[in-house]
Amino acid sequence: MPHALKRSLIYGALIIWTVIALFPIFWTFSTTFKVAKDVQLGHIIPWVDFKPAWLGLRAIGLSPDTIFTESTPRAEFVKRFWNSIQASFGASFLALIVGSMAAYGLSRFQYRWKIWKNNDISFFFLSQLILPPVVLAMPFLVLYKELALLDSMLGLILIYALSVLPIVIWIMKDQFDTIPQELEQAAMVDGCSVWGAFLLIILPIALPGMVAAFILSVILCWNEYFFAALLTSTNAKTLPVMVASQTGSQGISWWSMAALSSAAILPLIIIGVFLERYIVKGLTTGSVK
């Protein structure tokens, strides 16, 4: 019986861990349906501990009684949600295009800038991650003010693209390095130009890595708070900033904050459940044998 015992122990541990991991998400979702008293008393289980109410969803205009009416909070929420989508997808897309080309160059051509060679350039890109974003706060505030990019979606996309670029380059260079150079050489002998070989042969092979890099940077941009809070106000504000602003002068409105948080983590949960295997595949497997 030790085998069965071992199995049940493993499954037991996994179940416990699952509960621990899922609890914050459950708590966020359920708090959406609590009133102030339930939050303060720490009621956990719906219908047993507390009676679900529509408070949270009503605060963002999504409860059954408000959903078909004109609603300012809902318009506000939808706008922030859409901003977040634009910023994270736009920035990831931009970073993926620029980053893939940079990574391909670093993987295939020998560069030399003063005493810097490919490895030094790669490390320089990666080293940008070491710097805390706070260092960039003042310069970017000044720069964006001068360029009239404050509170604009374009400005947000640009800085997000910049901040995920090192990771994209890193992932994509790793991908390209695993693809044998003979593949594009064969393509060139077959009749491709350098660009043709890159677009027709190398990109399709590097696709799993690109998908992984894209998803990862969407997640990073989606969660970004600091620059959004710093560089945007009424127009380009994103969901995380809106969540944080729920701590008003009359105390925290738990239910609406929970409703917003739920809306903010929902896309990530969907990505996590459905696209996780693409991330793993893209980051672990090289391209060809």
Partner: peptide, 15 residues
């Protein structure tokens, strides 16, 4: 691409 040659590589380099 303009030399009209074909090449077979040691690792075959199949797409």
């Amino acid at each position: 691409k303009d030399r009209d040659i074909a090449m077979v590589f040691q690792n075959y380099a199949l797409y």
